[in-house]
Simulated assay, not measured.
Amino acid sequence: MSRVIDAASPDARDRLSAALGIARWVDEVAAGSPYASLDVLVDAGERAAADLTDAELDEAVGHHPRIGERAAGEGASSRLSAGEQAGLGRNDEGVDAAIARGNEVYEERFGRVFLIRAAGRSRQEVLDELQRRLKNDDAAETAEAKDQLRQIAALRLRALFGEDA
């Protein structure tokens, strides 16, 4: 059975911010509330994130730790990030060192933290994606980073507003 979701309350807006830390996106999704179901909320979130600007990408990056590092703070975004990265599996010294070095190269090249949907990926898959994306030009990588944000936001909306939230 579907339940109506209020995404406009202060608590819900905090959860929206944890899903995707972009003020315009939070305002747009909250303004469409109430939602007839979780799927309708996720669809609205995806529509609101369809045309993220470069400035919004920069705004969101501040809410994401480097892959392989712990998020600062104690909020919902930090807890979600920790859970997503915990799903990468056991530490592997060689892969972890390669990811750390790749993070440095990525940040030097693109000027922001490497964003990737960690959920459902192994450490090796993250490293492979990082190495592949380092070959992107600026425009292609910006588009990929925005797509990763959309994927992360959809998963987080499900976690934050789903039946088990």
Rank of each mutant, 00 (worst) to 15 (best):
T53S: 15
R47Q: 15
P65Y: 03
E59T: 02
D147I: 06
A8C: 09
E93V: 09
R117L: 15
A48M: 09
S33T: 15
L157S: 01
A76Q: 11
A60M: 12
E108T: 10
L157C: 03
S37M: 09
E107A: 14
G73S: 11
E28L: 14
D92E: 14
D92L: 04
R3A: 10
R112M: 13
R70K: 13
K135G: 14
T53Q: 07
L80E: 14
G68E: 03
S33D: 09
R90N: 11
A8P: 09
L157F: 15
K146E: 06
L127W: 10
R47G: 07
N136R: 00
G102V: 04
S122I: 14
D96H: 08
A12Q: 02
E129I: 03
V4Q: 07
P10M: 02
A8N: 11
A71K: 05
L134Y: 02
G111P: 03
A98M: 10
L160A: 08
D14M: 10
R112H: 15
I5R: 01
R133A: 07
A165F: 08
R24C: 06
S17D: 09
G102T: 02
S78R: 13
D11W: 00
L127Y: 05
R90G: 13
A50C: 04
A8K: 03
R3C: 02
R121Y: 11
E163Y: 02
L134E: 01
E108A: 15
D51M: 03
L155Y: 02
A100R: 12
A143N: 04
A60T: 00
G120T: 13
E46L: 12
P10R: 06
D43M: 09
R133F: 06
R15T: 00
L57P: 03
V29A: 08
Y106A: 01
I5H: 00
W25Q: 02
E144C: 04
V105H: 03
H64F: 15
S122T: 15
Q124M: 09
Q148C: 03
H63L: 11
T142Y: 00
D147W: 05
I67F: 11
N91Y: 04
S37R: 06
L16S: 01
E108D: 14
V61R: 08
D96G: 06
A100K: 05
V4L: 12
R24F: 07
S77D: 11
L155S: 11
A18K: 08
S122Y: 10
R70E: 15
A49K: 02
R3L: 11
G73Y: 12
L130E: 02
N103L: 01
A19L: 13
L20G: 00
E56V: 05
R158D: 04
E107Y: 07
Q131D: 12
V95C: 08
Q124C: 02
D39E: 14
R101P: 00
H63V: 01
N91H: 14
E107V: 11
A86S: 12
L160D: 03
I152K: 12
F161P: 00
V4G: 01
V4C: 08
D147Q: 13
T53H: 05
D54E: 13
R24A: 14
L80P: 00
L88R: 07
R121M: 11
R90D: 15
R79A: 07
G120D: 10
S33G: 13
V42D: 01
P34F: 14
A82Y: 01
A139Q: 13
W25G: 01
G89D: 11
A60E: 06
A49G: 12
R101M: 12
A98N: 01
S17A: 14
V40N: 04
D51E: 14
N91R: 15
G120Y: 09
A98I: 05
